[in-house]
Computed example of a mutant assay.
Amino acid sequence: MRILVVCGAGASSTFVALRLRRAAALAGMPLSASAGSASSLADDLRSTDVVLVGPHLERSLDEIHRLAAPRGVRVVLLPDDIFADSDGSRALALVTAAAPSATGSATAETA
């Protein structure tokens, strides 16, 4: 599964993506996570299964959903305190909830 973490310029999303990759590796889950910016989102969605949206982009959420929907990309708004998720476990739980069939999880909640 391919995860895109989006923030305004791509800086803070880099940390979330790195921690998410580590958490997935520890859990034995095959996924890739990369960081992106709001300005490159339309292009980046072409190779994405789930997009995690930085909390400061909440105002853009409707537009992100509009861009993602035709491609079947799940969109998850990250909580305000996601940057305190030092081991990536919370971000991984959000991904698992958003796309349970792709991660092999039985979690029923979707974004």
Score class of each variant (00 low, 15 high):
73 V>H: 06
52 L>P: 00
25 A>G: 08
17 A>R: 04
107 T>Y: 13
111 A>L: 05
85 D>F: 05
98 A>N: 02
27 A>D: 12
21 R>G: 12
83 F>V: 11
19 R>W: 07
92 L>C: 03
58 E>N: 09
79 P>W: 12
76 V>H: 00
100 P>M: 06
41 L>A: 01
30 P>C: 12
75 V>E: 01
34 S>I: 12
58 E>F: 12
47 S>M: 15
73 V>I: 07
71 R>E: 05
94 L>S: 01
102 A>C: 06
27 A>V: 10
28 G>K: 08
44 D>W: 12
98 A>G: 01
101 S>H: 12
39 S>G: 15
60 S>Y: 14
73 V>C: 07
35 A>N: 09
108 A>S: 13
109 E>H: 13
83 F>S: 09
87 D>P: 02
55 P>D: 05
80 D>I: 14
6 V>Y: 03
39 S>I: 15
108 A>G: 13
71 R>H: 10
47 S>E: 15
95 V>I: 04
14 T>N: 11
78 L>F: 06
4 L>E: 00
46 R>H: 15
31 L>S: 06
108 A>Y: 14
95 V>E: 00
79 P>Q: 10
97 A>W: 07
12 S>N: 05
102 A>F: 11
90 R>F: 11
105 S>R: 01
80 D>A: 14
32 S>M: 13
50 V>T: 08
10 G>R: 03
41 L>V: 00
17 A>H: 09
74 R>L: 03
111 A>W: 07
56 H>T: 13
44 D>M: 13
54 G>C: 08
22 R>P: 08
8 G>E: 10
91 A>R: 02
10 G>H: 04
92 L>G: 01
46 R>Y: 13
26 L>G: 13
75 V>M: 00
91 A>M: 02
55 P>L: 08
73 V>M: 04
1 M>E: 00
78 L>H: 06
68 A>D: 05
111 A>S: 11
37 S>K: 11
46 R>F: 11
50 V>W: 02
46 R>V: 10
58 E>Y: 13
